[in-house]
């Protein structure tokens, strides 16, 4: 009975460690104790970008958003698929130029800088404003 049982055993029936031991070619030297715990390295793309087909990178010029931790030359991650809300940081095109500001919808439509040296931009009737997308992160490089 025991022999019959062993004879019909297949690799799939073996416990995982057994399978590894018997079916993988054995190389000379000590196996790394970390082998069974291998994970893929941390991926910044995955962390920063949720929807890659709708995400664009834009470089900041100037310090108007410095208090939101967005410095001059920072790289913005802009997701066009996220609907901008009151208080979102957005990239918008205003009269044919891209600006990065905080979006204020209430009490009136306004693009707010995050730097007291800059004036809020109240969007006038007849001005061309297009919200390109929501800024989900900014990368400031120090060196």
């Amino acid at each position: 009975m025991t022999i019959n049982y062993l004879g019909s055993i297949s690799a799939d029936d073996l416990p995982a460690t057994f399978t590894k031991f018997f079916l993988e070619p054995v190389s000379v030297g000590f196996p790394s104790p970390a082998n069974d715990y291998l994970e893929s390295p941390i991926d910044l793309n995955k962390y920063l970008i949720k929807n890659n087909v709708a995400t664009f990178l834009i470089r900041v010029s100037g310090e108007s958003m410095i208090n939101a931790n967005i410095g001059d030359q920072a790289i913005l991650i802009v997701d066009r698929s996220l609907k901008p809300k009151h208080g979102s940081i957005v990239v918008a095109s205003l009269d044919g130029e891209f600006v990065c500001k905080r979006l204020q919808l209430r009490p009136r439509l306004c693009l707010l800088p995050e730097n007291p040296a800059y004036e809020p931009i109240y969007v006038q009737h007849g001005q061309d404003l297009d919200i390109m997308g929501t800024v989900t992160a900014a990368i400031n490089k120090f060196e």
């Binding site: 990178l57 834009i58 470089r59 010029s61 108007s64 913005l76 891209f98 600006v99 990065c100």
Partner: peptide, 11 residues
């Protein structure tokens, strides 16, 4: 969209 040196800029 394909070159770091060519990224669009926002003010």
């Amino acid at each position: 969209t394909t070159n770091w040196l060519d990224l669009p800029t926002a003010n």
